[in-house]
């Protein structure tokens, strides 16, 4: 393409296609992600949003916050509907980007079959998963994306159980398993990385998947001002890894020099406040394993903060395993 590639914040076009006046909570991480993705994608696009916080805050009848065409049907069919919209554009001879923006419930659990279908067919759509790690819209129920130990209304904290007992589902691994054109994880606190990846996804054709971690103020029980700080800590502690998958290869785009202990990330969030130290150890071990699996093939590995001096981490030689 002849247009200049975007690399830093300053390159983002100064046009808002997701406008003010939406009803999201103050400090919402999802709207930061959506707003900037829409700025980069531009108005030659059609957006599909399934049931999620996003449709509730941005499309209250009879108004909408998107200045592009917006479509909404059911929860489970983001992959299928975006496929259909793209097919219609192809028939009409129009070249427009079709974006599906689904939450983690609409991607990890309910929308998985449609996503898998579209990814396998290699449809020319851009799929964005805005991941706030639970069903926040309906009042904080656990999803496949909720991390280990987190409190939700369906993984309560009491005498017998202390939050979610399962690890977070590895969505990127599932998507990459479909051999897609492009897949990347994004963080709203790593701005230039964010810009580059969204721009790259916009330029490619074929099935593209962007996975954004979007902190949720009421669901994570955090302070509204700390949304971006928490997103940054997620990366610095290894709870969230920034990498992209392109041409059959996964590549880390940002590696912290020294992994911070997960407690730095956990202590800012009320949903982890109850966590006993054994659980924190389990989570830390999972993070370290994930990190070694992910970056183990590269020469320099950041030291795993909490487990220095303990037996070496298991690494099975597969850089994509447990990403």
């Amino acid at each position: 393409m002849s247009e200049k590639e975007l690399a830093i914040i300053r390159d983002i076009p100064n046009n808002d296609w997701f406008v003010s006046g939406h009803g999201a909570c103050p400090g919402c991480g999802m709207t930061i992600a959506v707003k900037n993705i829409m700025r980069i994608i531009g108005n030659n696009s059609t957006v599909y949003v399934p049931a999620s916080c996003l449709i509730v805050v941005s499309a209250v009848y009879p108004t909408s916050s998107f200045r592009t065409p917006l479509f909404f049907t059911a929860f489970e069919n983001t992959g299928a509907v975006t496929t259909g919209i793209k097919a219609a554009y192809r028939r009409l001879g129009k070249d427009a980007t079709v974006v599906g923006i689904a939450g983690d419930g609409g991607t990890f659990d309910i929308g998985l079959q449609a996503l898998s279908g579209a990814a396998e067919r290699g449809e020319d759509v851009l799929y964005v998963c805005v991941d706030n790690e639970a069903y926040m819209n309906t009042g904080i129920q656990r999803s496949g994306s909720t991390p280990f130990g987190a409190w939700t209304t369906t993984t309560p904290v009491g005498k017998k159980t202390k939050g979610k007992r399962q690890m977070k589902k590895d969505m990127m691994d599932l998507v990459i398993g479909h051999n897609v054109e492009y897949a990347a994880t994004l963080s709203i606190a790593h701005y230039n990385d964010f810009v580059k990846k969204v721009d790259k996804a916009k330029r490619k054709s074929g099935f593209r998947f962007l996975h954004v971690l979007t902190p949720c103020v009421p669901g994570w029980k955090t302070e509204s001002a700390k949304t971006v700080e928490i997103a940054k800590l997620a990366v610095e502690t290894g709870m969230w890894t920034l990498f992209e998958y392109e041409d059959g290869e996964a590549r880390a785009t940002y590696r912290p020099k020294q992994l911070l202990p997960v407690t730095d990330y956990l202590q800012l969030q009320g949903r982890f406040r109850h966590m006993p130290s054994e659980d924190i150890k389990v989570l830390q071990r999972w993070v370290c394993n994930k990190y070694y699996w992910h970056f183990g093939h590269e020469a320099e590995q950041p030291a795993c903060a909490m487990f220095k001096g303990e037996p070496e981490m298991h690494f099975d030689g597969d850089p994509l395993h447990g990403v």
Partner: peptide, 20 residues
């Protein structure tokens, strides 16, 4: 003004500054 935003002004008519 608001492209294809349905309705007069879309959500721009919803002044959320009152929450502050």
């Amino acid at each position: 003004l608001s492209g294809v935003t349905v309705g007069p002004g879309g959500s721009l008519g919803n002044y959320t500054g009152t929450w502050r």
